[in-house]
Simulated scan of single mutants.
Amino acid sequence: MEIKETEAEVARWREACELEVEAGKNEMGERDKVVAILKQELEKTRSALDISNGKLKLKEELAAAAMAAQEAAERSLQLADSRAAGLRERIEELTRQLEESESRERSRHKIRHICWPWRILKVNPASSASSRVQNVRRMLPEMQALLHNSA
């Protein structure tokens, strides 16, 4: 009787162990599925990270190119400013030379004025030239150069 009871108890324990083993196998299967899903998500995250790193690197290169372009533009502006300053000085020099030339011409015209009958015709080119020179002296050098070039 004791043997039968012991055998029955062993059979219950065996059945319980088999059920535990089956439950463990099911749990391991579920865990393997979760691991596979997590691996897929990890791969997706890695590829997204690689794409993001590529975009970030591209943006850094773009920013570096933009800074280089900005520096080149600043150098170009500085060069343009220096050239403009040089041209302004040249225009001022040419304006001064032109005024000197006009003043010499006016002094020559004064001598001609005596010889030519301008007073009879009431035309005095020397006075119109002197008023133009007075107007020119009130203007900026750039405007003076434009006036002299158009005249």
Rank of each mutant, 00 (worst) to 15 (best):
K57L: 14
L146F: 08
L77M: 14
L140G: 04
L38K: 13
R31F: 07
K33C: 01
E9H: 12
E99D: 10
A145F: 06
L121C: 09
S76R: 14
E15G: 05
A16S: 12
R88Y: 03
E71N: 13
Q70T: 04
E2H: 13
K122P: 01
E20Q: 13
L98P: 00
I114D: 00
A69E: 10
L42K: 10
E30C: 10
N149E: 09
A80G: 05
E99Q: 06
S127M: 05
E71Y: 10
V34T: 08
R119E: 01
L87T: 00
L140N: 07
E60H: 05
V35F: 02
D32F: 01
L147A: 07
S76A: 15
R14Y: 10
V35R: 00
Q97G: 04
R88F: 04
A48E: 09
L58E: 08
D81L: 08
T45G: 07
K25D: 05
Q40E: 14
A64S: 13
N26P: 00
P117Q: 12
A36V: 03
R108G: 09
G29P: 00
K25M: 04
A48L: 12
A8I: 10
G29A: 12
A151C: 13
L121Y: 10
V35I: 11
A65G: 05
L147Q: 07
P125T: 02
G86S: 12
L38V: 08
E60C: 04
E105Q: 14
